[in-house]
Amino acid sequence: MRRCLLFLTALLFAIPLILMVSSSLKPADQLATDPYSIWPDSFAWSNYAEALRALPFLRYLRNSLVLCLGSVLGTVSSCSLVAYSLARLKWRGRDVVFAVIIGTMLLPWHVTMIPRFLLLRELGLYNSLAALIAPTFLGDAFFIFLLRQFFRTIPEELSEAARLDGLSEWGIFWRIVLPLSKPALFTVALFQFIASWNDFSGPLLYLSDPHQFPLAYGLERFISSYSDQTHLLLAAATMFTLPIVILFFLTQRTFIQGIAATGLK
């Protein structure tokens, strides 16, 4: 009974993805006349080649990678510094700062959107990926929180011993705490990478030159101009999704533990 119910629900959840992949391989005329069969008559790999030609996929991919790697670098470096300060250093005002950081997680982006946009435009970052990357160097409340919780689990004695040996705080951070925190840093890097890969509203707001578009945004422009070419849309969407799905399967444990941890603190 339970197995049966599980199986049916799982089928409902899986069908959209199965249809997406199988239909992206259907020849255009089969997709038009017989859209509901799961199996393609013949595998039309040409859909993928055609989609690659129809949109500047490689340039978008390059932009996406610049955006993702830049943001990961920014988030990991800034958030680990701040989290170290909150978890391992004692200073006046620390607890207040931590409470404020937690509070900012609940703020909607609507209020800050317009001034933030005008500020970054003032700084000459409009129409540049830098507008999306630069803010990641200023920390993110959720990731700071995640890293702080992890840093607190590292025994304080390690730091004390290092201090007695004359290591500076930077030395302790860089040579002791960071190497011990690789799993947590990896989780943060992974989540930020995916967030940047998927980001749509950022490019929509800050980028107007198609040369700068990352995949998520370029793909949406493509959809609006090719809305009748379903086979190409599905092929492009599958190509865009595939790297994330592969990444997910390679890191499934990290992923699911990371999500579960957010709800239980």
């Binding site: 800034s78 510094l81 701040v82 300060s85 250093l89 200073w91 700062v97 200023l138 700071i144 951070f173």
Partner: peptide, 11 residues
């Protein structure tokens, strides 16, 4: 004191 604020300065 100061080190703490320095590390937290990005935020």
């Amino acid at each position: 004191g100061w080190t703490g604020w320095l590390f937290a300065s990005p935020w």
